[in-house]
Design a protein around this nucleic acid. Structure first.
Lengths: 334, 334
DNA sequence: TTGAAAGCGCTAACAC
DNA sequence: GTGTTAGCGCTTTCAA
C-alpha cells in the first residue's frame, strides 16, 4: 500500500491540508508544525502522487521538450540541462521528437492538450514555427524559445550567433587569412543567417570585399559540407586559405575532402566549425570551433518555465559562447 | 474550458461510463452506441486527461527511460524507437539520465515512486545494476532490460553481441588477416564481455591461438581507443594487421593514432568498430562496423511495457544485427 | 448492454 | 495557524 497524504497527516497529528501546505512550501504554518510534518513524511518515505497533484491543481510537474533536431549531441546536451533544472524542482521531462509535418496533424494537438504539461521547450527549427506557437497559445500552454529566429513575445534563450561568427572570423583574419570561405547552415535555421551575418560583418570591418564565390550553401549535414568543400576547393588558384563551416559536421566534411585532395589541414587550409560537438575533438586535426552552452540553454529554458510565477517573463536571456581554438587553424602559408 | 468526458456523454446521449468504455476499447458496448460516442468525441475534439486517468486507474500512460550512457547517438536512437511505440498507444516518455551513484540516493527512490510510471526501460550499464532492479521490484514498477549482462527474470531485449563479434572477426579472418588485435569495452558493460568472447571463438574455430598481446583494455571512449592503439601499434615488427575495436569511438581512436604514425588505413591496417554510430560514416576512411538496431530495441522495450497485459512477459527478445562493410578494412598487404 | 455512485490523492476555497 | 469541505476528470465497483 502506498502512503498517502492522510497517512502523513495522521502520523504528524495534523490535518491533511497542513501537510499539503508544508509540502508546497506555503506560508502560514508554525515552524514546529512544519518540522513535525517533514519528519513524519520522511519516516513514512512519503512522496506525493504526481497524477493526483496534477488533477487537483493546475500544475502537472511535467515539462515537454519538443524538437526536430538531427544532431544527437545537441539534443542530449539540451536534455541534460533541462533535466537538471527539473530535478531541482521535482519536475520531470517528457520528450517529444517530432517533425514539423507531424506537428501539423490533428493528433499532435490532441496529444499536446491531453498531456497537460506546465510548459514546453521549443528548439530550432520548431521554435520558429508560427503555427506551432499559435497552437500552444490556443491551448494555453506556456513555452520557451531556444535560439529562435526572432525573439517574439515568449521568453527566449539565445546566444549571440552573429557575434560568435564575427569573432571567429576575426580570429582567422587576425591569423593573416584574407580569403576565408564560408559554408552556410540550413536556411530554415535562424542561426544560419546570424552566423552568415557575423562572417560578413567581420570582413566588412576589416575592409575586405565580400566575395560570393567564397560562400557555399549547406544544410548542417556532413554530406553538404563535403559538397560545399568540393566546390570551394576545386580551383587551386582561387581556393580560400581558410574555411569557416557553420557547424562541426560540415567542417568535418571539409576536412575529409581536403584529405582526399591532398590539401593539408591546417598547413594549407585552416578549417573551423561551430557547436563544439564531440566530433570536434575526435577529428584529426582537432577542430577549432565555437562552443555553445547548449546544456545551459536547456537548463535556463526549464527554469523559466518552472518559475513562471512572473506570469510571462517575456525576457530574452543571452548566454555566453566561447571560441575553442584547437589544431585545425593556423596562419596561412607563405 | 476543456471538454471532459461528461461533455462527450451528454453530446452522445449516453452515460459517462459508456464513453469510458468506448475510449478504452472495452467490450459490452453496442456497435451503434460505440460509433455515436466516437463521433461525439471527435466533434468535441475531446481527449482524456492524463492525470485524471492516472489517478483513477493504475496506469499513468507514462514510461520512463533511465540511462547512464555517454553516447548521444545511442541515447537518441533508443529514445526515438521508444517514442514511436509510445505514440502508437497514447503513451509518453519521461527521460531520466542518471549516474549509478545518483541512483543510490534516497531521492532517486522517492522520485521513482512518486512518478508512478507504468514501466521503466533500463539500458547498459544501469540494466545490470542489481540494487536498481531490486528497488524497482520493491516499488512494484515493471521494467525491461535492454542488452543486459544476463537476461534475468525481467523481459529483456538484446542482440547477440557474441555472434556479431564472431562474424566480424570471421570477416577479417576471411580477408586473410592472421594477427587481429582487439580492444575491449568498459568492463561494466555486458556487451564488452560478449564481444570479446565472439572474437575469441572466431579465432579458436579457425585454429588460431589466442594471443593476449593482441588484446588491449578500453572503456568505450575515444581516448581509451587512442591509448590501446598506441600500445598495440608500438612495435612495427609484431603489430597486428587488423584491429577490432569494441565500439566506433575507440575505432576512431585507432584510426587517429594510425594517421599520426603514418600507418595507412586500410592499406597497412584494417580497422573495424561496433555500433555504426554516425561517426562511422564521418571518419575517413569510412568505418566497417556492426549496426545494432538500437531504435528497434527501444521500440521493442516500450512495446513490451505497454502490452504487459501478459503480466510478466519474461521472454528474451533477440533482434537482428548487421555487418556494415565500408572502407576501413581490406586484405592484408603482402 | 448500460448506468449510478463511490472513490483515486491531492489542492482550493473558505471557515474557524 | 489550522481544519473542513468540495471537487479536479476519470475508472471501478455494483446494480439494473
Amino acid at each position: 500500500m502506498k502512503t498517502t497524504i492522510t497517512d502523513v497527516a495522521r502520523e504528524a497529528g495534523v490535518s491533511m491540508k497542513t501537510v499539503s501546505r508544508v509540502l508546497n512550501n506555503e506560508p502560514n504554518v508554525a515552524e514546529a508544525t512544519r518540522e513535525r510534518v517533514k519528519e513524519a513524511a520522511r519516516s513514512l518515505q512519503y512522496s506525493p502522487n504526481l497524477a493526483a497533484r496534477g488533477l487537483a491543481s493546475s500544475r502537472s510537474y511535467l515539462l515537454a521538450l519538443i524538437y526536430d533536431n538531427p544532431s544527437p549531441s545537441y539534443v542530449t546536451n539540451l536534455q541534460g540541462g533541462a533535466i537538471e533544472a527539473c530535478r531541482k524542482s521535482g519536475y520531470h521531462l517528457i520528450i517529444e521528437p517530432m517533425t514539423a509535418e507531424q506537428l501539423r496533424s490533428p493528433e499532435a494537438e490532441t496529444m499536446l492538450s491531453r498531456l497537460n504539461v506546465d510548459g514546453v521547450i521549443l528548439t530550432p527549427p520548431l521554435c520558429d514555427d508560427i503555427d506551432l506557437r499559435t497552437m500552444l497559445k490556443r491551448l494555453n500552454i506556456s513555452y520557451v524559445l531556444v535560439a529562435p529566429e526572432k525573439p517574439g513575445r515568449a521568453p527566449t534563450v539565445i546566444i549571440d550567433d552573429r557575434m560568435a561568427a564575427r569573432q571567429m572570423t576575426d580570429f582567422m583574419l587576425g591569423q593573416g587569412h584574407k580569403r576565408i570561405g564560408f559554408i552556410c547552415g540550413h536556411a530554415s535555421h535562424s542561426s544560419s543567417h546570424h552566423r552568415m551575418e557575423g562572417y560578413q560583418q567581420a570582413l566588412e570591418a576589416k575592409g575586405i570585399a565580400y566575395d560570393p564565390e567564397l560562400v557555399a550553401k549547406g544544410d548542417f549535414s556532413f554530406r553538404s559540407g563535403v559538397e560545399a568543400a568540393e566546390r570551394l576547393l576545386a580551383d587551386p588558384q582561387t581556393r580560400p586559405t581558410a574555411i569557416f563551416a557553420s557547424n562541426d559536421d560540415m567542417a568535418a566534411g571539409v576536412v575529409s575532402v581536403a584529405g582526399r585532395m591532398g590539401i593539408g589541414v591546417p598547413e594549407q587550409l585552416s578549417v573551423c566549425g561551430f557547436d563544439d560537438t564531440p566530433l570536434a575533438q575526435i577529428l584529426w586535426p582537432k577542430l577549432t570551433t565555437v562552443a555553445q552552452p547548449i546544456g545551459e540553454m536547456g537548463r535556463k529554458a526549464a527554469e523559466i518555465l518552472i518559475d513562471r510565477s512572473g506570469g510571462g517573463n517575456p525576457g530574452v536571456h543571452t548566454l555566453d559562447f566561447e571560441l575553442v581554438i584547437r589544431e585545425s587553424t593556423r596562419a596561412p602559408a607563405g
